[in-house]
Amino acid sequence: MKVNDLIKKDLFKVINEGSDTDREIGKVFCCDLLSIAMGKAPAACCWVTVMGNINTLAVATLTDAAVLILAENAALDDAALNKAKEQGVTVLSSADPIFDTALKVYESL
């Protein structure tokens, strides 16, 4: 499933539509500790987290995640939102907890 297919499913709120929504989504990855995510997030993953600061965007960019989903309606601060726009990262938001959010994605892959 591509990033734009996930957006079209309307399961999540779109916070920022990135520059490469034609990308295929690989694994679903859940983690809130950036130290771990930096080492373990697979390329092209759909990363689900509640951590919405600017460093989250840096990690998403550098690990080459396909899409970032903020669970529990976790907010993205202004600096982080600007970074998402600047780096062309697709960011979605979900009211559900991390597991339920990740499961929804997994079931639609």
């Binding site: 080492g39 390329a43 990690v59 960019t61 550098l62 690990t63 080459d64």
Partner: peptide, 25 residues
């Protein structure tokens, strides 16, 4: 991020770009 973009533009293999980006970050 800047190095990542430059290497990408130079046509370096994405898996190598990723290693460099992570190690450098």
């Amino acid at each position: 991020s800047d190095v990542k973009q430059k290497l990408k533009a130079m046509g370096v293999d994405p898996s190598i770009v990723r290693k460099v980006a992570i190690a450098m970050y």
